[in-house]
């Protein structure tokens, strides 16, 4: 190729974020065009906030053509629920909430007891129930392939059988940008538009798009205690186990899940740019730092995913 032609082509260079955005928007539009009843999982966490922004941008200036769903463990940080409701109100979204507490009350699941337990795994039941009740055939999730080994091999369009289960050894091959969402009634497809994003990409997009986030993501002082090498917040949902000391520290959360199993990290980052700088220097992955649920076993995520987890 001549130098002139190369210079001309450079006009059409796309930045990495623009490339990722285009790919995600393509996936989201594909779902809206080919499924009857999609729903988008929105927890108030940073990944679902980015996914929601992409979905809104995919259909602008029209409204989002599907509702959002929150699986509520009942053990959420209050700030996150406030953020969730504010976002829904501002964007005029239809919010559905599926409560783990309802399953416990109805006797469908039993609340695990004892120190170090959480309702994390119970979310699967609440999620699958919401999918069945809403007859949803496509469920958008904010999972990324860089998060975890089992996720590294999951498809963008990931098939779930009539029991909501994932079979990692029988996944459909996925080529080019051609997605096979065919399914029978009762089956559904989990769709992961952020598959190719990394934690840092998510933060850089939050910066570029000025996406608001719950304040938990930024450094603040709060009472914490240490358990199994992780810092946990002292909230009404989780009391300090005997033999552990409460202390005040400046921390922030890298993920915001269930308050009983989501840890925080020491941090001084109070702005998005400072978080990005901190992440670039970090030596610990986001799940390793803050998710007790992943520490259950080496294959913890794989097992939960097979059962129908996010």
């Amino acid at each position: 190729m001549t130098a002139a032609a190369r210079l001309d082509a450079a006009r059409y260079d796309l930045s990495d974020l623009a490339t990722l955005e285009a790919e995600s928007v393509h996936v989201i539009r594909e779902v809206a065009a080919t499924f009857d009843r999609p729903v988008l999982l929105f927890s108030g966490g940073k990944d679902s906030a980015v996914m929601l922004r992409l979905a809104v941008k995919a259909f602008a200036p029209a409204a989002l053509p599907f509702p959002v769903l929150h699986v509520d463990t009942g053990h959420n940080f209050t700030e996150v629920i406030r953020y969730r409701d504010a976002t829904v109100r501002e964007l005029g979204l239809r919010l559905l909430v599926s409560r783990v507490q309802d399953d416990i009350d109805a006797g469908r699941v039993r609340e695990p007891t004892g120190p170090g337990t959480s309702r994390n795994r119970l979310q699967t039941t609440a999620l699958l129930r919401a999918i069945t009740e809403g007859a949803f055939d496509a469920v958008f999730g904010g999972a990324r392939r860089d998060e975890e080994k089992a996720r590294a091999k999951e498809r963008v369009f990931s098939f779930r059988d009539e029991f909501g289960q994932w079979d990692p050894s029988a996944q459909r091959p996925e080529l080019w940008n051609l997605f096979n969402g065919r399914h029978r009634p009762g089956e559904h497809i989990r769709v992961f538009p952020l598959s190719n994003w990394t934690e840092l990409d998510v933060w850089r997009y939050i910066a570029a798009e000025r996406i608001p986030l719950p304040t938990l993501y930024f450094a603040h002082r709060r009472m914490v205690f240490e358990r199994d090498g992780m810092l946990l917040a002292d909230t009404q949902h989780l009391s300090v186990a005997p033999g552990h000391d409460r202390f005040e520290a400046q921390v922030r959360f890298r993920t915001v899940g269930d308050a009983t199993c989501t840890g925080c990290v020491h941090s001084t980052a109070t702005t998005v740019d400072e978080v990005i700088a901190e992440l670039a220097a970090s030596r610990v992955s986001e799940r390793g730092a803050t998710r007790a649920d992943d520490r259950i076993s080496e294959a913890g995520m794989e097992d939960r995913k097979k059962e129908g987890y996010f």
């Binding site: 080994k149 089992a150 590294a152 990692p168 996944q171 190719n196 294959a299 794989e302």
Partner: peptide, 19 residues
Amino acid sequence: DGLRAERAQGITIDVAYRY
């Protein structure tokens, strides 16, 4: 090697994406 079946058999079965 991400999946348990893969580690158990000592082989990689599926395409894995790395970033």
